Amino acid sequence: MIDLRGNTGGNSTLGDILLSYCALPDSIYYYSADVCICELYLKNYQVNMEDVKKSLAIERGIILEDVTLPYVIKSVGDKPVKATSEYMNYWKANNGKETEPREPRKPFDGKIILLIGSNTFSSASDFATICKDNGLAIIYGTPTGGQPSCYGDILSFTLPNTGLKCGVSYKYFRRPDFRKDPEDALYPDVFLALDPDSHFKGKDILWERVLQDIRTDKVPDIAAR
């Protein structure tokens, strides 16, 4: 059981590491992103457009000729994107870490239960979305505080006259099964809201409900996605 309530995000690699300890199918659907290349992007990353073109050609097989900035690189067509076999093997061998492969181990093959709520954001919500879109977990709680597909990754800049520091997103992250868009939140499989009386008494009725379902073997089966 993984409690993502109150988890406002962080490094998404931690979710990858967590999944690497679980029994996964041969391939899973993963997040993809549209990227906006602009002058601010080039300045923040201290690269020029020729560097970007070379990188895209080598890493993604995208050939760009003359482009006018800002230019948006689309990530997908009309079908969800699966994680590459290399990425899946990287997970299984290294537990998502850039280290030498670990000794073979038995992955967790039981039911994965996630708890989400209105204060589940960013990479925590992404992790839950990956699990739901791939049928990897059963989810309890209330809807997340943000959309499964959303803008993210920030470019920083300072306003010249006021000196105010600002940030603007340059990526649009698409959920693994973006055919479900638009959704205003990730919705749980089992909805159970915390009522005010329980909250002020310090009673976590969601946690108690999940434990009760586990003890009585009433955790729902994970539906095919």
Rank of each mutant, 00 (worst) to 15 (best):
M1I: 12
I2E: 03
R5H: 03
G6M: 09
N7M: 13
L14N: 07
G15I: 01
D16E: 13
A23K: 15
Y29S: 09
A33G: 02
C36N: 06
C36W: 01
I37H: 01
E39G: 12
N44F: 04
N44K: 11
V52I: 14
V52F: 10
R60E: 14
I62A: 06
I63A: 12
V67G: 01
T68Q: 12
T68M: 04
L69I: 06
S75T: 07
V81L: 15
K82C: 13
A83S: 14
T84Y: 08
M88F: 09
M88V: 04
Y90N: 11
W91R: 02
W91L: 01
A93F: 01
N95E: 04
G96S: 02
K97N: 09
K97M: 12
E98H: 05
E98I: 02
T99D: 08
E100P: 00
P104C: 02
P107I: 12
F108Q: 07
G117N: 05
S118L: 12
N119R: 06
N119A: 11
F121V: 03
S123M: 00
A124Y: 03
A128I: 06
D133R: 12
N134D: 04
A137E: 06
A137D: 08
P148E: 02
P148K: 13
C150H: 09
S156Q: 13
S156M: 05
F157T: 02
L159G: 00
L159N: 05
P160R: 00
G163E: 04
L164I: 11
K171F: 02
K171E: 13
R174M: 07
R175Q: 12
R175S: 03
D184E: 14
Y187F: 15
D189P: 06
A193L: 10
D195P: 08
D197E: 09
H199I: 05
D204E: 10
R209V: 00
D213E: 08
I214K: 11
R215A: 10
T216S: 14
V219L: 03
D221R: 08
D221Y: 13
D221L: 08
D221H: 07
D221S: 08
A224K: 15
